[in-house]
Simulated scan of single mutants.
Amino acid sequence: MAKQDPRPDAPFHVVLNAGSGHTDTELRCATIREVLEAAGRTCVLEIVHDGARLPETAARTAARAAREGAILVAAGGDGTLNAVAHEAVRHGCVFGVLPQGTFNYFGRTHGIPEDLRQAVHALLRARVRHVQIGMVNQRSFLVNASVGLYPRLLEEREHDKRQFGRSRVVALLSALKTALGRHRNLRIALELDGESRRLRTPTLFVGNNRLQMRQVGMQPLDHAVEEGRLAAIAPRPVGRWRMLGLLLRGALGRLGQAEDVVAFAFRSMTVRAPLLSGRRRVKVAVDGEICKLALPLRFEALDGRLALLVADPPQRAAGAGEAAGQDCAL
């Protein structure tokens, strides 16, 4: 694990996802180079045009950054940040963020500007802060991970974004369409910090982001991450109209007031079958990316594992910034 600030002349190795909702890749690359070169810093850009190659590119770039004492930077949405952060942890690199996605929960939580030029300038005056990551089996997550209805919601949302454009309005309408459709409920057995528990729910959502918890109205859980824990949300099986009520509560930041929601914080949790009866692998959404993982699923909070560059003093996302662009966690 990287334990201290990088040297003042450390180069920046930037993994930029050209498919994170932007078509102006050349302009973004020019902006990054311009700001860093004006500050006398070396910049190496790795541009990823095919999302399937992102993990490979992130691993190769992280290995080179570790050898050269460079700062590893991710430019893209939360899924891109996740892939590069995973390799930063594996190789012991200091990690920088240039948020370029739709919701940018991770960057906003740590006060990192969404404007690209401002974000690059922030990297130059930033210092290392060790932050928590979540793990599910061998996959890390910065914002959330989930099983059940939520992965399906994300798949449908990505389809609708390709058809209608990338915006928070499209994302919200797509979520409503999917959540109000037909879906199966999960029957799951949990081992939760040493205790057993059973749940029946359409989706199990595990959050590692204070801002997202606060936006949907789960105030009792919004400090779980700062206390070294993860936050779990599991709506009870309900009909379409009550599900619509839950979605509206989430959009209005009042989900914590709903009677049809089970919520709790934990440090480690194992999710066992039957889940979806007969299946040994299950779809899991990890920071917006869908993967298949073998059962059982083990969720764990790893406190202070990621060496993140954050501007000093940190500008925490709060107030009006938190109210903007709310996303429903269900």
Rank of each mutant, 00 (worst) to 15 (best):
R200F: 05
T178A: 09
L180W: 04
T201H: 11
A231N: 04
L244A: 15
L244Q: 07
I233K: 06
G217F: 02
L255W: 12
E191G: 07
G245F: 02
R249Q: 15
M243H: 01
L221F: 08
L221C: 00
G207R: 01
H223K: 12
E259I: 00
R187E: 13
G239N: 14
R198D: 10
L255V: 11
G245Y: 03
P237I: 01
R236G: 01
L244K: 07
G256R: 11
T178M: 11
A232Y: 02
L190H: 01
V238M: 05
V225I: 14
L244Y: 04
L180C: 08
I233C: 14
A179Q: 05
L247V: 13
A232S: 04
A224M: 06
L199G: 02
L221P: 00
L204R: 02
A234P: 03
R214A: 15
A234V: 06
V206Q: 06
E191C: 11
T178G: 00
I188F: 02
L230S: 06
N209S: 13
V206N: 04
Q257R: 15
T178W: 00
G239S: 10
Q257H: 15
V225L: 14
R197I: 03
L192P: 00
R200H: 12
M213R: 01
E195M: 10
E227N: 13
M218Y: 05
T201A: 08
L230E: 04
R240T: 11
A231C: 10
R214Y: 13
L211M: 14
G217K: 00
L190D: 01
I233L: 15
L199W: 07
I233G: 00
L192E: 07
L221Y: 09
V225T: 10
A232M: 14
R229N: 07
G256Q: 10
R242D: 11
T201P: 05
R214M: 09
E226W: 00
P237C: 06
V261N: 06
R198P: 00
V206Y: 10
D193A: 08
A189H: 14
R197D: 03
H183W: 12
T178P: 00
D222G: 00
S196W: 11
E227G: 01
G245C: 08
L190N: 03
I233S: 01
V225C: 08
E195H: 14
A234I: 05
L248R: 13
L204C: 02
R214Q: 15
R254F: 02
G228H: 11
T178Y: 02
H223V: 03
T201R: 12
A224V: 11
V206M: 08
N208M: 08
L180V: 11
G253Q: 08
R242Y: 03
R214T: 02
G181Q: 09
L221A: 04
L252I: 04
L244V: 02
L255D: 05
E226G: 14
R182T: 14
P237N: 04
